[in-house]
């Protein structure tokens, strides 16, 4: 029996699922080294966070009466990103609350996937930073002995991270070259600089993310760090320390490139990245907390549609030339 169908009769291999899957796999690779060093605690933290995200997503699908589909893996990405932006020694309820906020306040009320104006992971992290700043910024010392049971508090000694030392105006103990290997105090996923860089290049090559925003973000942050160093040293050292400490590099590769919250046109994306990078340095200079990338990113998300409109206005409201 023949039936009617609507064109197109083809579809491409590149779907939202494949894009999200690339990002998810890239971020999962950041968990490997911490698991090797410290046991399975990082996996538990990430798992709790991802589970909360899925639970919130399922709840909202039921409320809205939509089908729950197994290919919706974007909540997993949100959950994992939040877990990677928090320290490993954090109590388990913290990433869960952050993820619940991210899904229930920053993502679902705006219409769910694809309609959120603000990056949910950044919003969740900002919420817990404002509510429990001491918990979010307490890091364990990787050079001393520590033990992390799967659930419950571990035994470790605390140390201040390079970004906190920079905030106080002193030079961190660790050399920038040593920071590349990731063996210093910081959030779970943001210290593995080399791995993040490799993931970034992989994402750009498979076209799951676009490089303009990242490059402009890093460029603007580097420029601000070189022109206004927070510590007494050469501009190059300041650039190295600023770019390698805190969540700046992680945000530049994974959060700024999120296609839903960034502008749609190329010049607007460059401006967005540069704005976010500059605001990150402003937050680091003038803000209360030692890290400012997520705050700056939320500001840039608010300004993203304006940047698109500005580009269209500059183009003359007719878009690209047409024919005939």
């Amino acid at each position: 029996m023949l039936k009617n169908a609507v064109p197109p009769y083809l579809k491409s291999e590149f779907t939202v699922f494949s894009m999200t899957r690339s990002t998810l796999l890239a971020q999962l690779s950041l968990l490997v080294v911490p698991i090797l060093y410290y046991g399975f605690r990082p996996l538990v933290v990430a798992g709790a966070s991802m589970l909360t995200a899925v639970a919130c997503h399922v709840l909202f699908c039921l409320i809205r009466g939509k089908n729950i589909s197994i290919t919706e893996i974007s909540p997993l990405v949100t959950g994992l990103m939040i877990a990677l932006l928090l320290p490993m020694n954090v109590p388990l309820w913290l990433p869960c609350i952050a993820t619940a906020f991210a899904m229930l306040v920053a993502r679902e009320p705006f219409g769910g996937f694809g309609r959120n104006p603000f990056n949910p992971a950044a919003a969740g992290l900002v919420f817990v930073t404002l509510c429990w700043p001491r918990l979010v910024f307490s890091y364990f010392d990787p050079s001393r002995a520590s033990s992390f049971p799967l659930l419950g508090a571990g035994t470790y000694s605390m140390v201040s991270s390079p970004s906190q030392v920079l905030k106080q105006g002193f030079k961190p103990d660790i050399l920038p070259r040593e920071m590349l290997w990731g063996n210093f105090a910081g959030p779970l996923g943001t210290t593995g600089i080399l791995i993040i860089g490799a993931c970034g290049i992989l994402l750009f090559l498979t076209r799951a993310a676009k490089p303009e925003a990242t490059l402009c973000f890093l460029g603007a942050a580097a420029l601000a760090a070189a022109l206004f160093p927070r510590i007494l040293c050469s501009p190059l050292t300041s650039v190295k320390y600023e770019l390698l400490s805190g969540s700046l590099f992680f945000c530049s590769v994974f959060l700024v490139t999120d296609p839903v919250t960034s502008p749609r046109t190329l010049p607007a994306r460059c401006l967005y990245g540069a704005f976010a990078g500059a605001m990150t340095m402003v937050f680091r200079w003038l803000g209360t907390y030692e890290q400012g990338a997520c705050f700056a990113l939320l500001l840039a998300n608010a300004a993203a549609p304006l940047m698109d409109s500005a580009v269209f206005r500059l183009r003359g409201w007719e878009g690209k030339p047409n024919e005939e």
Binding site: Y9, V16, G111, G112, F113, G114, P259, T265, P321
Partner: peptide, 29 residues
């Protein structure tokens, strides 16, 4: 063209990747 069946398309909201703008041969966005 005779087809056995069509690939199932699940429609999600627009993610803002900009591929449609690049693909259009007539300059539509």
């Amino acid at each position: 063209i005779a087809m056995k069946g069509l690939p199932r398309r699940k429609t999600l909201p627009c993610v803002g990747c900009g591929r449609c703008e690049r693909a259009c041969p007539r300059g539509i966005i």
